[in-house]
């Protein structure tokens, strides 16, 4: 691997860790177990392995490496590398522990939103005239992605929350079974995500490039708080979601493949980075996907038609995609 790439990866890893884990620097790394408070436990295991001579000297000899030089290899004779320790702590203390708060928050907000403002109705009511929106192949590619996404999401979350949440909840035996299953499933469906992503890109990239009209959409906050917003086949929200899926999806694919086939990359730090990016990307995608699912189903009248039947009600099109409606039908959306 080139020096440049190594440097870039190191920088990225450093940034990520520095951003979230400033306090887990080398100074307050704790050895595993309860090595510091020996007297209070007295249990066998690594904590007692040091005998009575638990002190910082031994621990310093145990681990090693310059915490500020991520590219430096682990010094000889050292058991634990500092960067590895950082990675582990960051992953366990931040990602795995708090990962679910974001999607959970999205669900709470959407529930409140739904309770307060209710389903977004087609204000003119349904016209009964349907106009084609997505071809069958586009729909199948969407649902193919959706299926793979759900399978990967469920298995991925299981792996992610196994230690901090499932073990205390279900015990380590059950968790072991679940994670074994989830890991196999996740590894199996992972490669299909790459296929789904590619298919999705090909089928939906047309119409998803940002345009001037999107700025107006942003200024009006998508019309969620009133006011009419114009948009073509896809509005700014949909376009952003599309590009987020594609771009984050590429990161998820790359990091996922690296983790599934670890022999592709020799450097363990790349794998460490991959787990972190993969986790963050997953949480981001899942959280926004919840919003996407909400608007596509119970949030907005008439939306689901486009993906189930391939056609939408004329009035729905006039309301939500007026410019597209005019393009497709050649009629004015204001009539």
């Amino acid at each position: 691997m080139s020096k440049f790439a190594q440097g870039a990866i190191a920088l990225l890893l450093l940034l990520v860790i520095a951003l979230f884990a400033t306090q887990t620097n080398a100074q307050n790394v704790r050895p595993p177990g309860d090595a510091v408070n020996l007297e209070s436990t007295g249990q066998p295991g690594p904590s007692n392995a040091l005998g009575d001579r638990s002190d910082s000297e031994i621990w310093d000899a145990f681990r090693g490496g310059d915490p500020n030089d991520l590219l430096a290899p682990r010094p000889d004779g050292v058991v634990l590398s500092t960067t590895g320790q950082h990675w582990r702590e960051f992953r366990e203390n931040y990602i795995n522990k708090y990962a679910l708060w974001l999607p959970a928050g999205v669900i709470v907000i959407l529930t409140l939103f739904h309770l307060i403002s209710g389903k977004m109705k087609i204000s003119a009511g349904r016209s009964g005239n349907m106009i084609p929106r997505f071809t069958l192949n586009a729909r199948v590619s969407h649902w193919f992605m959706a299926s793979i996404f759900i399978l990967l999401g469920l298995s991925g979350i299981t792996i992610m929350i196994a230690r901090p949440i499932l073990v205390p909840l279900l015990g380590s035996k059950v968790t072991s079974v679940l994670t074994s299953a989830a890991l196999q499933g996740h590894n199996l469906f992972g490669p299909l995500f790459v296929v789904a992503l590619l298919w999705m890109f090909i089928k939906f990239v047309r119409g998803n490039f940002f345009q001037i009209v999107d700025f107006k959409w942003i200024f009006k906050l998508g019309g969620f708080f009133g006011g009419h917003v114009s948009s073509r086949q896809f509005n700014f929200g949909e376009k952003s979601w599309f590009w987020m899926v594609i771009l984050v999806g590429i990161v998820m694919s790359a990091t996922g493949l690296a983790l599934e086939f670890p022999w592709i990359m020799e450097d363990i730090r790349l794998l460490q980075l991959s787990t972190i990016l993969h986790g963050i990307g997953a949480i981001a995608l899942i959280s926004v996907a919840i919003g996407h699912i909400y608007i596509g189903t119970i949030g907005m009248e008439g939306s689901i038609d486009s993906m189930l039947k391939g056609e939408v009600d004329e009035n729905w099109a006039k309301e939500h995609h007026d410019l597209w409606y005019e393009e497709v039908t050649g009629k004015s959306a204001k009539d």
Binding site: V140, W143, F144, N187, P191, L192, V195
Partner: peptide
């Protein structure tokens, strides 16, 4: 095994999602 399973799953999923998304 992984390759074949992926092909089989992809096929089954495509068949089923077609079932729910085509009038």
């Amino acid at each position: 095994f992984v390759l074949v399973a992926d092909v089989a799953f992809a096929g089954l999923i495509v068949l089923w999602v077609r079932r729910i998304s085509d009038p």
